[in-house]
């Protein structure tokens, strides 16, 4: 089964997209959408705003077209998923990014470097499964009746 990127990695990719201005065209083409991206929104806000307010994205969603057809960030998601599934190596990254995004070598190399420096992606590439890095389950579960698993002793303890 293929691994898909974690939510945090998706946010990281969104940050890269913003850093290199890969999706500036969305703001230029859609004033309504731009009105929702004011100030310094977080990565999650930007993703949500795109999904909810950008007409091209909405069109894709409407027709069930993969967002990677129009969004550079989603194209990067595809590349990173190929990376963590070990379909490509780190050396292939700059070329893969360049081919997917159709951007200059210099920028694709920098993006590749940023991705290579991301520890979470490295871990996900090595590990069998992608671990979601959410807030601790117990943090919010101030009240829960789910019984905790019984602690079992080791063999020596049991023999005692």
């Amino acid at each position: 089964m293929e691994k898909i990127i974690s939510f945090n990695t998706r946010l990281f990719i969104e940050d890269i997209t913003t850093k290199y201005g890969l999706e500036n065209f969305l703001l230029q083409n859609d004033a309504g959408f731009a009105s929702h991206i004011v100030g310094n929104p977080t990565a999650a806000e930007r993703i949500a705003a795109k999904l909810m307010f950008n007409k091209d994205v909405k069109n894709c969603l409407e027709k069930n077209i993969p967002l990677a057809e129009i969004l550079p960030s989603e194209k990067l998601v595809v590349v990173v998923e190929d990376l963590i599934n070990q379909k490509i190596g780190y050396n292939d990254l700059p070329i893969a990014i360049k081919e997917e995004l159709n951007i200059p070598d210099e920028i694709s190399s920098q993006i590749a470097q940023d991705i290579a420096n991301n520890k979470k992606i490295t871990e996900d590439r090595i590990n069998e499964i992608v671990k979601e890095d959410f807030e601790e389950e117990t943090q919010g579960s101030e009240f829960s009746n789910t019984p905790s698993p019984e602690k079992t002793g080791g063999l020596s303890q049991e023999l005692q």
């Binding site: 898909i4 990127i5 939510f7 998706r10 946010l11 969104e14 977080t42 990565a43 999650a44 806000e45 993703i47 949500a48 705003a49 999904l51 909810m52 069930n64 077209i65 993969p66 967002l67 990677a68 057809e69 989603e74 194209k75 595809v78 590349v79 998923e81 190929d82 379909k87 490509i88 292939d92 070329i95 893969a96 081919e99 997917e100």
Partner: peptide
């Protein structure tokens, strides 16, 4: 709301077909 929307989108968004992959 926006974080949750982004999360759902990330997990449910249709992936591109193999032809687009390098």
């Amino acid at each position: 709301i926006q974080g949750n929307i982004a999360f759902i989108a990330n997990r449910t968004n249709p992936r591109p077909t193999q032809r687009t992959r390098v």
